[in-house]
Design a protein around this nucleic acid. Structure first.
Length: 399
RNA sequence: GGUGAGAUAGUCAAGUGGCCAACGACGGCGGACUGUAAAUCCGCUCCCUACGGGUUCAGAGGUUCGACUCCUCUUCUCACCA
């Protein structure tokens, strides 16, 4: 049981610092039922969570399964500085109302994964504000510039002469101080957070709180392309609030290789079960596609429902495997006869009439399942199902 | 503040007076094959009811029969110096 727990905790992690203490904590839980705390910090900016974020959340959920109380920290104070990525120097400060609003929508999304009864949502302004100037000063005496410059991006910027604001030095210190205040036993974060995470460990020692947090770092999840990290700006993400059908489709579009990565980091299946699947695919007894469907179902079910997952699968089969028409198509109307190219543009399934003509020429356009080739076709009165390629559909009613 | 280099389509990047709606690469889209995967192959990739027309190469002027290409100014970017 303990071994199983430790394996699940280590699963997919990039690096764990002070694993022995994690073992001690778990042992204490299994033997005496003693709980411990796991901290994770989040930005109070608009939470539009995607699967990349859920990697961390699921790790937290695993900890909850094994006796942890989660300190879900919303960095409302630290957000005023912004984690020094060197990209944008200043951030706009959020109003109290905005922060509360964002926190609320965080909760809606996050508690689909986390057990709310074992989670404390905390804001770091709560203890950082009372710190005052003197408290802040004390904090800064714990560290020095040379060590601060150990941080990779500081080092690079310093050497290449890019400006580093003093306030950016404060950021890691404050994040570390959060761990002091919360007396966290473990903190988890992405690999990019290593310096800050270790700062918590260091400051807990400096403030003599009698423990030093262990640190668990999770890798950054690759996006749909399998190469770059999942992020909204790159457009290779799957948002947790996306519609079931979209979610399902996106997961099915990932490569087989990436699928295993997603299994490891996102699935609730045990490592043994996943291993069995891998073997099955390797010896040909299992088809990769069904495995991928299972993953897609699992994830859709997590953020929506089992029913939604089943529906998404069915829809997907209809549309793609049997190449039928999806049930839910956008509808448009127009008056009088229309030229087909124009109609495709009006229905938002072609960007321009030029493109529409090209599509027709290439045999990509279908009306009511029939391929067409006449660029000059006029649509008379009636209802039509227009299709460009395999995925773009629209229903058009000509009056 | 000084000097030099540069700005070309979604991105990178050719083109240094007509052969330019502009090589190529990537991306994207479509087709074949499939498992809406990967790999591969083929086609397309400014707009317009189109064997034609229109608007493009940072912006504004100018030279020229003709400009992405030459000149002037403006804006912005980068490098070196201070």
């Amino acid at each position: 049981m303990l071994q199983e727990a430790l394996r699940e905790i280590q699963r997919g992690s990039a690096e764990i610092i002070d694993m022995p203490r994690v073992e001690t904590l778990l042992k204490a839980y299994f033997i005496e039922g003693k709980t411990y705390t796991v901290k994770a910090g989040f930005d109070p900016t608009a939470p539009d969570l995607h699967l990349g974020h859920t990697v961390l959340l699921q790790k937290l959920a695993t900890f909850q399964k094994y006796g942890a109380r989660i300190q879900f920290l919303i960095g409302d104070f630290t957000a005023q500085i912004g984690d020094p990525t060197g990209k944008s120097a200043t951030r706009k400060t959020l109003s109290q109302a905005d922060i509360l609003e964002n926190a609320k929508s965080y909760k809606e999304q996050v508690f689909k994964i986390l057990d709310a009864s074992k989670t404390d949502v905390v804001f770091n302004s709560e203890w950082i504000n009372p710190l005052g100037a003197s408290g802040m000063l004390t904090l800064t005496t714990t560290y020095n510039v040379a060590r601060m410059l150990e941080r990779d991006d500081f080092d690079k910027r310093y050497k290449s002469g890019v400006s580093i604001s003093i306030s950016e030095f404060i950021y890691p210190l404050l994040q570390g101080y959060d761990s002091v205040h919360l007396k966290s036993d473990i903190e988890i974060g992405g690999t990019d957070q290593k310096f800050n995470l270790l700062m918590g460990r260091y400051l807990q020692r400096a403030y003599e709180i009698g423990k030093e947090q262990s640190v668990l770092m999770m890798p950054i999840l690759e996006g749909l392309d399998g190469v770059q990290k999942m992020s909204k700006s790159l457009g290779n993400y799957i948002g947790v609030t996306e519609a079931p059908n979209d979610m399902f489709g996106k997961i099915l579009s990932i490569s087989d290789e990436l699928m295993w990565r997603y299994y490891e980091l996102l699935s609730a299946k045990s490592l043994d079960a996943i291993e069995a699947l891998k073997n099955g695919v390797a010896d040909g007894s299992l088809h990769p596609k069904t495995i991928k469907e299972d993953l897609a179902m699992e994830i859709v079910a997590r953020f929506h429902s089992n029913a939604a997952a089943n529906a998404a699968k069915e829809e997907f089969d209809n549309v793609h495997a049997k190449s039928q028409i999806p049930t839910d198509i956008e509808e448009f109307e127009c008056d009088g006869a229309v030229w087909i190219a124009k109609a495709l543009v009006d229905c938002n399934i072609a960007p321009s009439t030029s493109q529409a003509r090209r599509d027709i020429k290439q045999g990509a356009v279908k009306i009511d399942q029939e391929k067409i080739s006449d660029e000059q076709l006029q649509l008379d009165k009636g209802e039509y199902i227009l299709q460009v390629g395999k995925r773009k559909f629209a229903k058009l009613k000509v009056n």
